[in-house]
């Protein structure tokens, strides 16, 4: 139940954030510090999500096939592969390593 609440609540919240951007006159929120923080948020959160997804297993940090998967993703991104190739390429590499 609380999962449904999070799904719908955060969903509506994300819509309201979009609507606010189109509705509020820019001068009310345009401040260099606020803009910089808002620009850094995606970078910081996505980097943290990568780190946690790759190394965390519950409360401990581990090295397993996921690291090889994300290393493959990194290589594919350097080669300018499309998003889907990157994501499923990482899955394939991790799956192959687990089969060894």
């Amino acid at each position: 139940m609380s999962l449904w609440l999070a799904v719908i609540g955060a969903g509506i919240g994300c819509y309201l954030l979009k609507l606010a951007g189109l509705s509020i006159p820019a001068r009310f929120v345009e401040h260099p510090v606020i803009e910089r923080i808002a620009d850094f948020i995606p970078v910081a959160l996505l980097a943290a999500l990568v780190a946690v997804q790759v190394f965390a297993s519950g409360q401990s940090l581990v090295l397993d096939a996921r690291l090889a998967g994300v290393a493959a993703a990194f290589a594919l991104l350097l080669l300018r592969a499309p998003f889907l190739v990157v994501v499923f390429g990482a899955a394939l590499v991790a799956a192959l390593i687990r089969m060894l």
């Binding site: 609380s2 999962l3 609440l5 999070a6 799904v7 609540g9 955060a10 919240g13 994300c14 954030l17 979009k18 609507l19 606010a20 951007g21 189109l22 509705s23 509020i24 820019a26 929120v29 345009e30 803009e35 808002a38 620009d39 948020i41 995606p42 959160l45 996505l46 999500l49």
Partner: peptide
Amino acid sequence: PLAAGFTALLLGSRNTLYGL
């Protein structure tokens, strides 16, 4: 679910800037 929803909202804040 609360932490998950809050993280999603934080990431959604960049869309506000796009709107501006």
